[in-house]
């Protein structure tokens, strides 16, 4: 990071595919991390929402390699990310200083975790068992299961954040003038994932129990995101590149709306209490729809604003 940074660099033209990838990577990683937390530290009744999280993580992940591959100049060489084809230097590619290289591996390995966890959730749902996370019949139960989820959760947090670090590890204006993008994308991914799982509880009655907790978590994530956004702007103002964000002002505003919505929602009026009547639940359902859509739009807008401001 520099004061009054100078940049004479060409833009890489990472546009729509990459925007889509960053969006789904944030949601996939965030959903897995939240599903793991719901399962491991939550109430037994949070298991239904956890399963939604594992499904959401896997489904959003499926899009990621497709978008990444489509963005390549030679899409048939997607596997060159992992395998070195330099004559006389065969083996696997891993450049620890290149987030793109590390990220390709994490996408691959995390993909396995997301697939296994989604499959496990599916098997459990098919069995029609109680949503209790305990019990010997869980395919991945006990310490092994918990360890699996924790390992997957750590990979998920990396997956949701590395895309921001990838942008910073460049010489582009804005991106390379700040260290905040990894954290910012992660906070926004977690917020978006809480909103996504909350939205999906509409289709699973036994998951409504977790709605209040998801809203509360989303409020915390939004505070974190707001702090990081302020830090981000401070660093790029110091570098003298903040003016590049001006043409994308509407996107930044939309990102801010996405951050503010859960803060308003988390004040408590949407919390579902066991004693709440059906009218309360219906009202909360409508609010959740609106808030979740705004949050998800904000997640997309934030990434679009960051991507396009520098190019």
């Amino acid at each position: 990071m520099y004061l009054a940074a100078e940049h004479f660099v060409r833009a890489p033209q990472w546009t729509w595919y990459i925007l889509g990838y960053f969006f789904f990577a944030g949601l996939s990683g965030g959903s897995y991390a939240l599903a793991t937390l719901l399962r491991l530290v939550g109430d037994a009744r949070d298991e239904a929402a956890a399963r939604i999280g594992f499904y959401a993580s896997f489904l959003t992940l499926l899009v990621c390699p497709v978008l990444l591959t489509a963005d390549l100049g030679v899409w048939t060489r997607f596997w060159h990310m992992l395998v070195n084809v330099t004559p006389g230097d065969p083996g696997l590619n891993f450049t620890y200083g290149s987030p793109m290289s590390v990220g390709a591996w994490v996408l691959f390995v995390f993909g396995l975790f997301a697939a296994v966890s989604a499959l496990e959730a599916f098997v459990l749902d098919r069995r029609g068992r109680s949503t209790s996370s305990a019990g010997p019949a869980r395919p991945l139960g006990g310490v092994l299961g918990r360890g699996f989820n924790i390992a997957g959760g750590i990979l998920a947090l990396f997956f949701a954040s590395y895309t921001g670090v990838l942008l910073s590890v460049s010489n582009q204006p804005i991106w390379s003038d700040t260290w905040m993008l990894g954290g910012l994308f992660l906070a926004s991914g977690l917020s978006g994932s809480a909103a996504l799982i909350a939205l999906l509880t509409r289709y699973r009655a036994d998951a409504v129990f977790s709605l209040g907790r998801l809203n509360e978590a989303d409020g915390y994530f939004s505070i974190l995101e707001l702090v990081l956004l302020v830090a981000f702007f401070i660093t790029i103002v110091a570098a003298g590149t903040a003016s590049l964000t001006l043409p994308w002002f509407p996107l930044w505003v939309l990102a801010l709306v996405g951050i503010a919505s859960p803060l308003v929602a988390a004040r408590g009026h949407m919390r579902i209490r066991p004693a709440g009547g059906s009218a309360v639940i219906a009202r909360a359902g409508t609010d959740t729809l609106v808030v979740s859509v705004l949050v998800l739009l904000g997640v997309l807008a934030l990434r679009a604003a960051v991507i396009f401001s520098a190019q």
């Binding site: 990472w14 030679v74 990310m81 084809v85 793109m100």
Partner: peptide
């Protein structure tokens, strides 16, 4: 023959 056009 190794580059895949990622533009990094």
């Amino acid at each position: 023959d190794a580059c895949n056009g990622c533009r990094n």
